[in-house]
């Protein structure tokens, strides 16, 4: 094998071996579709709050709130498109909910986009996403 050929082949293998397991875009789309169906989320109203620069992917503070009355919001769903499994959590509200906001701590396997989708009681959806950098990934070993 010529040196050039070898480098091309070797170069193409390295990412396949070293890249952390992450869901494919199709799996992410499928995960979102399984939750909200074919509704296309609109931008606005929902605010996803995650740090843009994450030092430790094992515990990342995340909060999502939507500018709406509690009775107008059915649920907030959160997805991580670069994790091995794209779903993070689904939070459904009820009659005793005081404010449509949730906060939790999540794991992030790599630098990626985190997506939040709010499902309203009238069937519409709003989404927000944050692109972030992870310096220490949640350990997979």
């Amino acid at each position: 094998m010529k040196r050039r050929g070898f480098l091309i082949v070797a170069g193409s293998l390295v990412p396949a071996i070293w890249a952390p397991a992450r869901a494919t875009p199709a799996e992410v789309a499928q995960a979102i579709k399984s939750v909200i169906g074919s509704t296309v989320p609109k931008p606005g109203r929902l605010k996803l709050d995650v740090p843009v620069l994450v030092e430790n992917g094992n515990a990342v503070a995340l909060s999502a709130s939507i500018d709406a009355l509690p009775g107008e919001v059915r649920a907030i769903h959160v997805f991580a498109e670069g994790n091995p499994l794209p779903r993070i959590g689904s939070f459904r509200f009820g009659p005793a909910t005081g404010r449509p906001r949730i906060a939790t701590r999540i794991r992030l396997a790599t630098s990626q986009t985190v997506i939040a989708i709010a499902e309203m009681t009238d069937g519409t959806c709003y989404s927000d996403s944050v692109d972030l950098l992870v310096t220490l990934a949640a350990c997979l070993e």
Partner: peptide
């Protein structure tokens, strides 16, 4: 639940950090 009325129902996945923490709001009736 607050007096049998739902405040929050959460479905959690492995991407939730160890020692899960949740913060949310209820209306005190």
């Amino acid at each position: 639940t607050y007096n049998n009325q739902v405040v929050l129902e959460a479905e959690l996945f492995p991407a939730v950090a160890a020692n899960p923490f949740l913060s949310f709001f209820a209306v005190a009736e």
